[in-house]
Nucleic acid binder design. Structure first.
Lengths: 331, 331
DNA sequence: GGGATTACTGTGCACGTTCACAGACAGGGA
DNA sequence: TCCCTGTCTGTGAACGTGCACAGTAATCCC
């Protein structure tokens, strides 16, 4: 049984294609009589528009493509992705648009994304955790609007984005340590080619100034193992530290393990602060004091930005949203 | 600047549309001379096929829609979703197909999914963690092929699926407890309208037989809090229990907290086993002995199933993959 | 040498929409 | 009465592709 077309609906309603099309697309010039007849015909025939045919003529696809950069550190990104995906789907659905997913892990993937976008298969591009200096960002500029969820290091000016105020979050945690009277505060950062890596360190330095010596800073790669390693390193370099701000909860879990092995009590001997307020934060022992990012709002604003651009808005500003200190037992 | 069409390519290569189309679609009857000319023309013009036009005539969309049921217990599903999404994207990309995401949280969402699928906007449907007796499963049957990642309770016969052998996993853990000489083994299950809820209990009962008394079984809803609650309940009902099999790592983390409050040592007084081998399993204290599910393989097989159906295969069998016991400190 | 086969190519049509245009009808003002 | 304006409707063309078909040229077999 063939799917009903707009012709079938028109015939059933006793009007022409044009009138049905006008109703479907919200044109005001449709008589009340025609309107009810068409609406009945649509529900009777079970008609649903053929998007392919529509986009052939409108040059629009009714879809947005979300591009996932896929680095090794999968674990870290997960909750972030999931929330964002859900919110994007929901917001797009309200406009009857759909979300297509693509990966940009290797060069082949990126090539495919560029072809897809250049080929006009999406009305907009939503970048997720794209890396610094990714060459394919340039390739995207000639196509439909693109935005990023989280800043794209090095391309903040060219790709609009919404993000949490990572720097503020780092300041909140560091100030909390200071207010508690901690004297030797160390930090474990993320990779320094990601916004989270860079800005959380900046916030830390904002508060501590000269006291943020190189000796008290170690780098991780967002993994649990790297957090453990970095903590061990810090304990060697500065055995007298009494607090450590770790740039992610997962790494903080690793740091906790290292501290336990070294026989330090948390928070008595060493206060530990995480970042993200992810699910690990509550399952560690002790539970982590951490920084909550407004993930849902960031996702929302990102999509809103993209939709505005698709609607033809010209100058959109990046959106930066505040973080929040969540106090638990570790500090 | 207009995007080049197949006409432009044909003109540039000095052949007709038909020949270009044949090359694009892998038809063998294209002369070597034409082939190179066309390939050059394609890369010179930067041509990429217009999917809308293609699907208008082929009646195929080149896309698969993944439908996410969105219950409250988001946290539990996340890692699962992320892996599956990635694998699906990757496998579909190999065939130049794309993945569209939809939500099926409330009735409105489901209505939208049905419309989308019925409207012929996808060549296949990939169901994720669909609930028992979901009415919209029937609505999907008249459309393109549908498969599920994980069994759909009550529809195992109608919706093909790939899944981990949950029952086996539960047996593995329970047998391990028995082998260790545990005598009073309790269980905290998941919701009894999910495959994980039902089958993990079945496996438990397989091993214990009559010894799996009602008194030793409590129910959770996959959340951490529910695990804690259920554990407290069990301790009241059966203070002498010496092991507990918890149907998810997250709930097990909750159970661990309850045991600690009650002053029981793990694993000395009570052995605790989880399920999933998720990221929480390694961040609890002590780390969880748990059951690893072959998530990636399940995802792969699910997609493979769907692609086979899309290719016209008729009788596909469900695929069930073995789980594995991962021994850590909690048992 | 003629017919059959094989390898390859070009052309018209259909897919289901939207959009621009033209036209019909009614009501109001001069 | 006539024209104008506003509301509503139908129609033809176009979007870019794949496919069936017809056609050509070369090769092969008897």
């Amino acid at each position: 049984m063939k799917r009903p077309t707009i012709h079938d609906v028109a015939a059933a309603a006793g009007v022409s294609r044009g009138t049905v099309s006008r109703l479907l697309n919200g044109d005001k010039y449709v008589s009340p009589k025609a309107r009810v007849a068409i609406e009945r015909a649509i529900s009777e025939t079970g008609y649903v528009v053929n998007r392919a045919a529509r986009s052939l003529v409108t040059q629009r696809t009714g879809s947005v493509v979300m591009v996932l950069s896929e680095p090794q550190e999968k674990l870290f990104e997960d909750p972030n992705y999931s929330t964002t995906i859900r919110i994007a789907i929901r917001m797009l659905a309200e406009r009857d648009m759909s979300l297509v997913m693509m990966l940009a892990g290797d060069a082949g993937d990126r090539e495919r994304v560029v072809r897809y976008v250049r080929g006009g298969h999406a009305d907009g591009v939503l970048l997720m955790s794209t890396h610094a200096g990714d060459p394919f960002i340039d390739a995207l500029r000639s196509g439909p609007p693109a935005v990023s969820c989280g800043a794209v290091v090095g391309s903040e000016g060219v790709i609009p984005y919404a993000a949490a105020d990572e720097r503020l979050g780092a300041r909140q945690m560091t100030e909390y340590f200071v207010a508690q009277g901690r004297r030797r505060i160390a930090m474990i950062t993320g990779p320094m080619d990601t916004p989270g890596g860079i800005q959380r360190l900046e916030g830390f330095a904002d508060v501590l100034g000269r006291k943020a010596s190189k000796k008290l800073i170690a780098h991780g790669d967002w993994t649990r193992a790297s957090g453990e390693r970095a903590m061990t390193e810090l304990l060697e370099r500065a055995p007298d530290l009494d607090a450590v701000f770790v740039a992610s909860d997962l790494m903080a879990a690793g740091a906790l393990a290292a501290l336990r092995s070294a026989g330090r009590r948390v928070p008595d001997d060493v206060a530990v602060g995480g970042f993200d307020d992810s699910s690990v934060a509550v399952s560690t022992h002790p539970p982590l004091t951490t920084i909550r990012q407004p993930l849902a709002e960031v996702a929302q604003e990102t999509v809103r930005l993209l939709l505005a651009l698709i609607d033809g808005e010209q100058n959109v500003e990046p959106v930066i949203l505040p973080t929040e200190l969540v106090i638990r037992a570790s500090a």
